[in-house]
Simulated scan of single mutants.
Amino acid sequence: MTHLADRVRTPLAELRGWSRSRLWIAVGAGGGVAALLIATGGLAAAAAVAPWWTWPAIAVGALLFGLIAATFRRAPAGPEPVVCDLRWPVLGFVGLSLATEQVSAVPMIDPLVRPAIALAALALLVYGLVDRMSRERRMLAERRRLDAGGEPTAGLVCTTCRPLFPSRHPESAEPTADRLTRS
């Protein structure tokens, strides 16, 4: 249990060291996600009938998604996102969107199940953020170790992660994480 608490506490402490540009990206992306969830969920028109938990779920989800988006600013492994980085945040966003949707005449999801789906979506977003930040922390530690003349750590490179938008240039065809260990 203390290991889980440390995995959550460490990224929260790291947020204090973020640059202003990362914080502004987090605010902008979070605001955009909140606006998108409100618009697509029909909450602007149906705010009076929305359950009480909808607004806090959107606020927390937008904040988490904004923080995830900000981690791509000056990322140690390069700014190119990989599939592993976006899998859980995208699933969390889709779950949150389905849970907060208010406009359909026949709801896709039973209203009694929606809070549980919203909590699961928020858990996916938290997991995605903690995972992304812990990988970033490991990459920075590895870079410092390599700069000090150490040997590359075995098993640090993710062999299943592929670029989300692969380039056609042969010199950049290798995965982003592989480039880190060769510096």
Rank of each mutant, 00 (worst) to 15 (best):
G150P: 04
A50R: 04
M139Q: 14
R132L: 10
A59S: 06
T40R: 08
L86A: 06
L140Q: 10
R16V: 02
R135A: 09
L91E: 03
Q102Y: 04
P111L: 09
A116C: 11
E151I: 13
S104E: 14
L43Y: 07
S104A: 14
C84M: 15
A69R: 10
E142L: 09
A50S: 04
S19T: 06
L124V: 01
A69P: 02
W55F: 05
I117G: 03
G32I: 08
A118C: 03
V94F: 00
A75Q: 09
R135T: 07
Q102A: 10
A45D: 12
R20P: 13
Y127D: 14
I109G: 02
P81T: 04
L96C: 09
S134W: 12
P76L: 06
E14F: 07
R144E: 11
A44W: 03
V33L: 04
L125T: 04
A47L: 08
C84K: 13
R135S: 05
R144T: 06
E142P: 09
G28I: 10
W55L: 00
A123R: 03
A46R: 15
R145M: 04
G42M: 04
W52N: 14
G30I: 03
A118R: 08
I109D: 09
L64R: 00
P51N: 09
L43C: 11
M133R: 07
R132A: 00
V27D: 08
V27W: 09
S97F: 08
P107I: 05
A121I: 00
A48Q: 12
S97P: 08
F65G: 05
T153G: 13
A75E: 10
V130K: 08
V49A: 15
W88A: 10
V60E: 06
C84V: 15
R22Y: 05
P51D: 00
S21C: 11
T153D: 14
A50Y: 04
G28P: 11
R73Q: 07
A29R: 11
S134R: 08
D131V: 13
A34Q: 00
L67A: 07
R137S: 13
M139S: 13
A141G: 11
R87D: 11
W18C: 12
P79Y: 14
L122G: 10
A120W: 01
A29F: 03
E101W: 09
V113S: 08
A34K: 12
G41H: 05
I68V: 09
L64N: 00
Y127Q: 12
T54L: 02
V113D: 07
L98F: 09
A13Y: 01
A34D: 02
P115W: 05
F65T: 13
E151Y: 00
C84P: 15
L125P: 02
G150H: 10
L63H: 02
G41T: 06
R132F: 07
G78A: 00
A44N: 09
R22F: 06
F65S: 13
G149H: 05
P56F: 01
A39H: 12
I109P: 07
V130C: 03
V82G: 13
A118Q: 01
L64M: 05
A34E: 04
V90S: 02
S104L: 15
G78F: 07
V94M: 00
G150K: 02
F65E: 08
A116N: 04
A148V: 01
D147E: 14
D147C: 11
M139A: 14
